[in-house]
């Protein structure tokens, strides 16, 4: 038995009559508005999570600052050393922008196969990262395995941090601050994203393995970053598996065997969609699939 989610007596259709939405057209304007509203305000990006608040029986916030139309936050810049991704870039746009960069296969797949086509065209990468309640976000493990950094800005200035750190502080991010950029280093690497929805597509994956390795000319792993999503409440790297693969010839079966030995470090989350044990059980096969896809790339 899995405990149900709390239900109000009131049916879910109602929306909060008092919410305001300020449509910002520049970052400065958005920061000003957020600063003005303080804790009563929040950022509204694609809206695919916030607009479902009534379904979750969560009240809407009093004020939203819509940032989706801020041009400077909506670009993907592909440089020689890094790729800079604006936070309001949609999943669909991100997948399209990265389509010809094999080193970003993991992220293109994460962005290009999540949810469904219309949602991918609405939901933003920044929203995906900044929603603590969404354990099954595809882009979080994908960006973890790419060693992404997150730039956060407020009126008082900007700071950059590792995505791992951002995930720790995101639910307590001070009012008036928002993600302004995602920076992903470029390098020679083989990457792949293995996600497991319960149907063929269209639902949230119950487990995700995002995989990135660099191999030398002899096929030995020189560097590895592997992240696991949806299994635990927050995605994280699988450092023991990474360490175990370093220096070894990369083969998918071997990686899966090692994953089997190490999988017990995960404490899965029980959900209505899948039990905890299942999420952990499927990890080795996702590692195999990811490794095979990466090798084939």
């Amino acid at each position: 038995m899995i405990p149900g989610s709390p239900m109000q007596r009131v049916p879910a259709a109602a929306h909060n009559a008092a919410s305001s939405i300020h449509v910002a057209h520049s970052l400065a304007n958005a920061l000003d508005a957020l600063s003005e509203w303080g804790s009563a305000g929040a950022v509204f990006a694609g809206g695919t999570w916030i607009m479902r608040s009534p379904i979750r029986h969560e009240p809407l916030r009093e004020h939203y600052v819509a940032i989706g139309r801020i041009a400077e936050l909506g670009a993907v810049r592909i440089g020689t050393d890094v790729v800079e991704i604006g936070p309001v870039v949609t999943h669909a746009a991100l997948a399209a922008a990265l389509a010809d960069l094999p080193e970003f296969n993991v992220l293109a797949a994460a962005a290009g196969r999540s949810a469904n086509p219309a949602i991918r065209a609405m939901a933003t990468i920044g929203g995906n990262l900044a929603t603590p309640g969404f354990a099954a976000a595809d882009c979080v493990p994908a960006l973890l395995c790419l060693d992404a950094e997150i730039e956060v800005a407020g009126r008082e200035g900007r700071e950059r941090m590792k995505l791992e750190h951002f995930l720790q502080i995101r639910s307590t991010l001070a009012p008036g601050r928002l993600v302004t950029q995602i920076v992903v280093p470029r390098s020679e690497r083989k990457t792949a994203h293995a996600r497991l929805p319960l149907r063929k597509a269209g639902d949230y994956p119950v487990a995700i393995v995002s995989f990135s390795v660099s191999v030398d000319a002899a096929g030995r792993v020189q560097a590895a970053r592997i992240a696991v999503g949806s299994v635990e409440p927050v995605a994280r790297r699988w450092e023991r598996l990474e360490a175990a693969l370093i220096g070894r010839q990369l083969d998918a079966e071997g990686a899966a065997r090692t994953a089997t030995e190490l999988a017990e470090e995960f404490v899965g989350r029980d959900g209505v969609d899948a039990p905890a044990w299942y999420r952990v059980s499927v990890l080795p096969s996702l590692v195999r699939r990811a490794a095979a896809a990466a090798l084939g790339a």
Partner: peptide, 20 residues
């Protein structure tokens, strides 16, 4: 689903302010 500026979009997730 409706087309907003030509793009198929679920109108349940589109707030009025952003359809303006």
């Amino acid at each position: 689903m409706v087309l907003i500026d030509g793009k198929p979009t679920p109108s349940c997730l589109t707030p009025a302010a952003l359809a303006d």
